[in-house]
Nucleic acid binder design. Sequence first.
DNA 1: AGCCAAGCTGTTAACGATACCAACCAGAAG
DNA 2: CTTCTGGTTGGTATCGTTAACAGCTTGGCT
Lengths: 336, 336
Amino acid sequence: MAATRPTMKDVAAEAGVSTMTVSRVVNGDSAVAPGTAARVEAAVRKLGYQRDDVARQLRRTHELSQIIGLLVDDVTDPFMAAVASAAEDVARQRGSIMLIGSSRADLRREREVIAAFTARRVDGLILTPAAGSHRFLRPAQAQGTKIVCVDRAAPGLDVDAVVVDNFGAVREAVAHVVAHGHRRIGYIGDTPRIWTFGERRRGYLAALESAGIAADPALVRDGVRTGPEAAAAVTGMLALHDPPTALLAGNELLAFGALTAAPGDLAFVAFDDFALAARLTPPVTVIAQDPVALATSAAHLLFARIHGDVSPPRTVVMPTRLIRRGSGEIPGPFAA
Amino acid sequence: MAATRPTMKDVAAEAGVSTMTVSRVVNGDSAVAPGTAARVEAAVRKLGYQRDDVARQLRRTHELSQIIGLLVDDVTDPFMAAVASAAEDVARQRGSIMLIGSSRADLRREREVIAAFTARRVDGLILTPAAGSHRFLRPAQAQGTKIVCVDRAAPGLDVDAVVVDNFGAVREAVAHVVAHGHRRIGYIGDTPRIWTFGERRRGYLAALESAGIAADPALVRDGVRTGPEAAAAVTGMLALHDPPTALLAGNELLAFGALTAAPGDLAFVAFDDFALAARLTPPVTVIAQDPVALATSAAHLLFARIHGDVSPPRTVVMPTRLIRRGSGEIPGPFAA
DNA sequence: AGCCAAGCTGTTAACGATACCAACCAGAAG
DNA sequence: CTTCTGGTTGGTATCGTTAACAGCTTGGCT
């Protein structure tokens, strides 16, 4: 049953050589006579031998493991899925494989998964850090594990990050809605303790302040995590005595939820573009970012670090784009 | 810089004990005097020691590695993302971590990634096999790597699979459209060499045949992989002398593409439900399956195998559901 | 012939952890 | 006082691979 896999020793016996010679052949070392190499290769095929990278890595303790780890909140978020896909593509190009884990926004879970990854000697980690301090990564970092954050910065940790200007993008979007005559503008996001949502929320408040609009706590919903929660939040806001005439949804998942509850005449802007945005009625105005570019950039940065880049940590800010499709341009009660 | 991580030897020296004692403490073996254990734990904390699971696994060659591998076509496909998420959840519950790889529908790439995974001694693999023979997995299987397919069966390989009745679901959906008065019905799918699309295509053809409708090759498009390709295929069909009045899209990605090109009066059914299906005009009729249930079931099956289940391979068929939302009920020219 | 270089192959000792067994100690039993 | 038991600790070998070095041919050159 649990047939044990053949080792170099088995191959060596089969081919009548030493394990060292097998090692050389398996690793493409040229210093082996063609005839010998052929015999070894035949034995490899006959036994179905495959090099054991666990043993190899132990022996080569100071070489790279060629494994990276990716930690996301939740892969079912299309943004994170795009990140995962792009990161894996780069890893593959660089000859590495990728471990994936989800934190589900739970810092303890994130910690556990990261510990399991570092115990396997990953060369580096790509993180979308959950809310909370990431000081716990210091020891891993000190021992040489490279870390890059994507989409979010990690409070308490001095590492590279690839993000967008969430603050500016939302401020611009809210100003855009204000310019279309809205003053009662709702905001739905996850907890501001997640860096990205903190920034987005700040951008929202800054835009209101610039416009001389007092922020109404009833129109700001934090800690919203799922589509149904977002839908409920929208329903709640619309039931207010003085309901919002415009709404900003903090990410794709929340936008989907909000859209199931939002009437067509509510002005609407979503953070993150999505496939059918243009097909809805009205077509949805979005703040678009490019998750593939973010993740590709983050992965390249990570591999540069892994291969010895020791320059000071930097934060790369990628552009966003406000795509006006209609829902964000619905005129409000104060339209000129 | 590349500070080397502390080993048990370092901890042992620090605590004034042998590595064996450190090993016992680190692994929670009770046969250590409380005072000694406390000294070791202090040393562990002081040095920031973490057990090296690479070395551990080499020593414990016949134990499980607690790593599984997941191979999907492409994680950006929401169906695959849901599968990945669910599989990782189960892995975590079972104390394992998960490697992820994408084949991008390329059998060679799939092979390479799987080889890299098995070289790391994964306990098992969850696969959505690309088109082509998977005979190459035989040796890995013979050496004890457990394999479960999800969403698709693997030609040439005798393993567990968790799938839906693609044939039946599409046949039913097409019959449903026929019942609403359509006879010119288009089909867009990826290559029928991928098991799932082969089944869906067969279902489509079977429904036409039952209805006494001759299949028109101009209305069947195989090998469509991306949204834009799907849109182009729709545009092409609509430009025909005798265009289709109804269309079936073979998965979510193709549906999204098709929808950008399909006019609102074209009857439309998509395989896979999606978040905004009910918000489109007209709301989209879909064949829904439950990717989380599929993947959860597949992962449980895999872990059962890993833990010694040696019963004959089985194929689990999960239900689908035709959700009538409107687009599939648009009456055709032959409606009663 | 004698010597050296080049090419090929093998031996040994690790990498970091743990299974297995032996050794030690205290106190209890005889 | 010896023997034994049980609790605790350490020594040694090993997992599969490879770095470092040593040894053996062969052939060319002087």
